[in-house]
Design a protein around this nucleic acid. Structure first.
Ligand SMILES: [Mn+2]
Ligand SMILES: [Mn+2]
Ligand SMILES: [Zn+2]
Ligand SMILES: [Zn+2]
Lengths: 136, 136
DNA sequence: TTCCTTGTTTATAATTATTCTAAAGAAGAT
DNA sequence: ATCTTCTTTAGAATAATTATAAACAAGGAA
């Protein structure tokens, strides 16, 4: 449980002005036990439902990208019509339930270390992600 | 090197009528030594350039999805504004050069077997794909 | 406080990838 | 040749995302 005051400080420390909208979004995204996977639209609807206040869709996009740029959110590479984000910014892998369109964290120990035995000259590895698609 | 006649037969055997457009697309996609990674727009432009004939964008979409449904193309899960397809339909992994927006095949032996040590009740694994993002 | 600067929110328009529609055309069967 | 079914096509529709620009709010200085 993080207090509103802590979010305000975190925002300030990130040179993001602590607006009402951003604080609301912080509380929805980061006051959780478990990691949260969402699309912009999920979040947009959650804000209305949980706070009663509406935040414009543009602001949701702006804020999510601001948090993403600061490293507070991770973008998940799946083929979908919508982009998925994740509050768990550590390196980790995913199940994707194709039917439910839901992401599930896969702990690294459930996948094991992955060694890439090939390299591309002039390039270095930025991330290694496993996506396990699930069907019924 | 596959002849036009062989593409015609392959299309017929797939209950796809061998139209001029589909044959052209087959020749561009499948008359290659190496695996080919592309977006719809890449392909659309290639057809014009290589055959001199234009195929409507709708037909390119239709054909790619028809081939995809028949299992002749694979869809690659990356976060991008465009969907990527692959003429290599076997299970395999990828590098994605973020700067060049280019996919590179990773052979299975360059990654090694991946064992998923977790299961979700009522679901079974459909695919396991590794995406290695590259930066400079 | 008040003023000023800069960052933020917002409604709305623009952009872009993809899908849909419906009419014209081509393929295959009879 | 005729008929049916499938395919192509231009263009419209949809949907996610980004851009625009005016109103607004935060923070700092006076
Ligand atoms: Mn996750
Ligand atoms: Mn490939
Ligand atoms: Zn982002
Ligand atoms: Zn498809």
């Amino acid at each position: 449980m993080t207090s509103k005051q802590e979010f305000i400080e975190k925002l300030r420390n990130s040179s993001l002005r602590p607006t009402k909208q951003r604080i609301n979004i912080c509380e929805i995204l980061f006051n959780r036990d478990k990691t949260f996977h969402f699309t912009i639209n999920d979040l947009f609807n959650l804000i209305k439902d949980k706070t009663g206040e509406k935040v414009s869709l543009a602001t949701v996009y702006n804020t999510v990208h601001a948090f993403h740029k600061k490293g507070y959110l991770k973008e998940i590479p799946i083929n979908s019509n919508q982009t998925y984000f994740d509050t768990n910014v550590t390196d980790h892998h995913h199940f994707f339930d194709v039917k439910e369109e839901k992401l599930i964290d896969l702990k690294n120990e459930h996948v094991g270390p992955i060694e890439i035995q090939k390299s591309i000259p002039g390039k270095k590895i930025k991330s290694v992600e496993v996506l396990v698609k699930l069907e019924d």
